[in-house]
Design a protein around this nucleic acid. Structure first.
Lengths: 218, 218
DNA sequence: GCGATGATGTTGACAATGTCAACACCTGCG
DNA sequence: CGCAGGTGTTGACATTGTCAACATCATCGC
């Protein structure tokens, strides 16, 4: 054989490790999922990769930059899940319901990850502007869905951004309460609550049957 | 004079400091408000009271027990604010609106404190059962209000607990998003959002004008 | 080919923090 | 007065994030 002439002419493959940045990202995400956020220490993550602490500093500014990158990756997956739910249900009211369910499902299935994404967002996003962009892109999925629903005269023509924030706040609230253990020990409560919330939410923003175009109704 | 015969026959007044437990509680709450939760260190709090770190261990099991006590005090004030809002508005739909506003107002005016109350609730409440009781008492204010509204046939006769959790999740979600900086830099957004949310929320849970008793309406 | 060069990773050290063990003090009771 | 126990202090330790100095290695200009 040609012996140990590993990796010739491959610019995208960095020097020593291969792709330590990616590996750090994956390992951090894995640890968050498996053992929670407090288990993510530079020493532990480094050790798991056969690399010493501070190796991270060649790829991230500091620990919070790593967490911001993890959060970014989370927002990207999150966005995909939401798009998929809306699309698979064929939009409309069914799509609205599916997206709401998908939201809470993602949050509970990735609770620690979700906490990183929404925990100290202000700190992280100021240091990593791209995080804000990814978060915004995920939010935009909801806005786009509402625009479609408004175009089809299925929901009120209120300012779409505020309407989106309202719905977002509700599912986010359910997710946070469930994650933080404030909904009690029974996990089925969260599911039933999500179902009820989506129904009542829809009623709240639906166009009343008899009013054609409720301007500033109040 | 009788000289320095300080504090004779006063069992509730402890030995050296006077009431270090209370002082620790107050100082921790003050620090949280003024400098945020991460500024609450045993050394800093102790120094501010002219007492050394570890003095806390004679009054609390550990740091998280102190934070749990701070959270308890927060839930008690929170409960009072909600009761006051509901009562001052005279109940009814106006009371519902006032309570929603008071909720978000408390959360934003005491954002760091609020985060302690709702942050790692699962950990804190398992170590301090009374915290769970205080949190439950605050939640009960909302439940009681909804029961009244249901009695007056102003809102749907859905299961009150779930209805309460739904509303709770929405205002909690608004509060968390605002606190975490996810609603953008403009603070007026949160206020307008709260207003819209309360209106749409009410529409969502109101009894439809023409349906007398919508059983399991769907 | 080969040496400079910059990217990548390591070791040593440091300050901050929560916590425990051992000790010191102080108050009230018998 | 003396003891017992509640209250506070000091010393020490492990853990953590971070920086400075050093080591290594791949690549590029000659």
């Amino acid at each position: 054989m040609a012996g140990t002439h590993r990796r010739r002419r491959k610019p995208p493959v960095p020097y020593h490790h291969g792709d330590l940045r990616r590996a750090l990202l994956v390992e951090a995400a894995r640890t968050i999922r498996a053992e929670g956020i407090e288990a993510v220490t530079l020493r532990a993550v480094g050790a798991r990769l056969g690399v010493s602490r501070t190796a991270l500093y060649r790829h991230f500014a500091d620990k919070s930059a790593l967490l911001a990158a993890v959060a970014r990756e989370g927002f990207q997956r999150f966005r995909q899940d939401l798009i998929e739910a809306w699309t698979d249900a064929g939009g409309g009211r069914a799509g609205f319901t599916a997206m709401g369910r998908a939201y809470v499902h993602f949050a509970l299935a990735n609770s620690s990850h979700y906490r990183v994404m929404f925990g100290d967002f202000r700190d992280l996003s100021t240091r990593d502007p791209e995080l804000a962009a990814d978060a915004s892109a995920a939010f935009q999925v909801l806005v786009d869905a509402l625009i479609t629903l408004q175009s089809d005269s299925l929901i009120r023509p209120d300012e779409t951004g505020q309407l989106a924030r309202f719905i977002w706040a509700t599912v986010h609230g359910i997710a946070m309460l469930a994650i933080d253990g404030q909904l009690g020990p029974d996990p089925s409560v969260a599911g039933a609550l999500t179902q009820l919330a989506i129904e009542r939410l829809h009623t709240g923003i639906a166009l009343a049957r008899n009013e054609a175009s409720p301007q500033t109704a109040e």
